[in-house]
Design a protein around this nucleic acid. Sequence first.
DNA 1: GTCTATAAGCCGATAGAC
DNA 2: GTCTATCGGCTTATAGAC
Lengths: 189, 189
Amino acid sequence: MSSKNDSRENILSAATRLFHIQGYHATGLNQILKESGAPKGSLYYHFPNGKEQLAIEAVNMMARLIEGELREHFSLFDDPVQCIQYHIQFIAKKFDDIENLKSLPVGLMAAETSLFSEPLRTACLSAFEGWEKLYCDKLIQQGYEDTFAKEISTVINSMIEGAITRSLANKNGAPLYLAAESIQLLLKK
Amino acid sequence: MSSKNDSRENILSAATRLFHIQGYHATGLNQILKESGAPKGSLYYHFPNGKEQLAIEAVNMMARLIEGELREHFSLFDDPVQCIQYHIQFIAKKFDDIENLKSLPVGLMAAETSLFSEPLRTACLSAFEGWEKLYCDKLIQQGYEDTFAKEISTVINSMIEGAITRSLANKNGAPLYLAAESIQLLLKK
DNA sequence: GTCTATAAGCCGATAGAC
DNA sequence: GTCTATCGGCTTATAGAC
């Protein structure tokens, strides 16, 4: 891999972390550059459309990252309830060491930018829809009815994003653990 | 009411609206002052601790506002499922006219500021806990077991906040309507 | 491709006249 | 209590040397 890609990737991975933890408006380009070690000139070389483009690519990167985690967690059990509970508890564990929180899904970015930037909104929407597709497929595969699977997937994804916010306010993962418990109520056959 | 209180209330109500729709960092004091018609000097007279104090009072105001709506909706039916569904659909309707969205709960503020300002985090937490107390009391009153009522109240509140974010990304209230439907699964006796 | 210097504007906050 | 002028710092973005 050439140094060109290193620089680009350093910027993008710092941006992905900071945007998703601090939010879009609280994160300055200077902070991203400082953490990535790259100078400002190369940011605008690699991301000519500036902050908005960087944020869109950061959301896409986070989307793929979470998608990978979901695929992994879905391969652990046949039962969707167990898989989804495992996934939520996996997120909840990050709150045990809240000072070193280093990645969260796109909920904050979506809430901040959906009324502010149409391209950013659609990037967040694509992330949500991609994850929900994975929930849905797993549910259908295990015998749930198609329409129910699709609808409950959106509900589950919403619940997870909300429980993350609630856990942030709580300064611990308790609300996420409660959400995990309630998955069996939502998916009771 | 004296003009002193008018000025203070104008600033606070503009701040409440803007903070909860745009977020803390995206909302400038200049914008709040412009919308409220007050000059900058009087903002710092009424809110000597500046932006953070203003945001805390805005969260408290929104907490009381939603609390009033919840009390009203809880008086409509005996069945908690019906009450909560009514409340969620009440929020969902605001997304029919998304351009004129004028108030949302504190989810965005909580997600943005919980790792940023401890006083703001606790203000958001108090808002959440106040609403959840109302859910909990209604559930206990209708025969649900105490521990279950308390836990499911946090889950319901989380789900609502998450469904709001999901509806913002969707640019319509569909995810909130799905969340409303799923309340009966969470509260099935 | 990389890097620096700088522009132009907005931010929150303050001082001080009235 | 109200209002204005202004400060220092930060923001995104750009111009241009290397």
